[in-house]
Design a protein around this nucleic acid. Structure first.
Lengths: 200, 200
DNA sequence: CCTACCGATCGGTAGG
DNA sequence: CCTACCGATCGGTAGG
């Protein structure tokens, strides 16, 4: 018999991860230390550690929750809209809103931070980050392709190029907001995105 | 009387910093630890430490050298060209070449990495990174403004918007190269930059 | 520029 | 989920 019920253990694990996402948003995934989490949650280090079994497993679970939160905050905002330019526009608006609000826990875009932190550290975390980035770019490209098919964008449009450029605009906005505290960045980003998405 | 001449001490300091830039390019400025530098250079920790007096001073000196290297690798490549669209184009080409080569020590764009690492850590390092970012954006904006004045760009062009967008294209390319190892990124970046710079 | 330390913190383990 | 550890490493200091 476990000392805590399975449901209680699951809730504890979820509490740990919610805090881990906040810490990671501010200090990076390496900044999520087991000792800090234990302190913040008034638990022992071994209590935290036991839910994951390794620092790497904790990082992977933290990253997965951050992606889930991004999907809820951004991707889901454009669900239900017809694929194509309209969905792309709504997605971009939600994306910029997310960046203007400071991303998760006001630490900025989680994916960008994780990408620069891990792009030179081979392993499962790097792989997960790279996969999330690819999925996001391919989703944007898919929507651009749908817009071309619907005749909303010129037939010689390269959907992957649209995705590449939108991603850059978002990263530039994220940097301007986080580093320069530049309040004009969301407006600039919207302008550039709307022109890039173009269409009728 | 010092045990080493002032010139020898300066050379040692320069050796430390060259290695520190390489470490920082791969693992971030926090990854530059005094113990690692001492090991790599076959020195004692106190020997390394003595040249700087604090970890923060070491980080600041490392960042300053990285900026110097960026200027030599990118900015200087467009010196001597007339300010305006031509200089902007040459600068962008050198910029993309730099990113395609993997930035410094193949760790990607140093400024982007330092920006995401420190944007949530107030202090002198964050200030130096923010200032370097602002100077770069304002240099790009200055060149765009010169292009407008020369009649190479429409008179209603917003130079800061051009700088904002070029920066984003570069960041998107850097991420694609570093994270997805996407070899088409330099081509996409050049295409987007040349269209953004536009002109005759 | 060295040896020899300091207290703090890291990820992880033993045993309950 | 806890206490009580482990060896390694961190930034930094004393004293030469």
């Amino acid at each position: 018999m476990p000392r805590r019920s399975a449901a209680e253990a699951r809730e504890t694990r979820a509490r740990i991860l919610r805090r881990a996402v906040e810490l990671a948003a501010l200090d990076g995934l390496e900044g999520v230390t087991i000792g800090r989490l234990a302190d913040d949650l008034s638990m022992s280090k071994a209590g935290v550690y036991g839910h994951f079994g390794s620092k790497e497993a904790l990082q992977l679970a933290t990253f997965a929750l951050a992606i889930e939160q991004f999907q809820e905050l951004v991707t889901s905002k454009a669900d239900g809209t017809t694929a194509g330019v309209e969905r792309l526009r709504r997605l971009c608006d939600a994306w910029v809103d997310y960046l203007a609000a400071g991303g998760i826990a006001e630490g900025g875009c989680f994916l960008t931070a994780a990408a620069t932190e891990f792009d030179n550290r081979p392993g499962p975390v790097r792989d997960a980050v790279a996969q999330a980035g690819e999925r996001w770019l391919s989703y944007l490209g898919h929507l651009a392709a749908a817009a071309v098919e619907a005749g909303e964008l010129p037939s010689d449009t390269d959907p992957a190029q649209i995705a590449f450029e939108l991603n850059g605009i978002a990263m530039s906005a994220n940097q301007a907001i986080q580093l320069q505290r530049d309040t004009s960045a969301p407006r600039r980003a919207r302008r550039a995105m709307h022109r890039t998405v173009g269409g009728s």
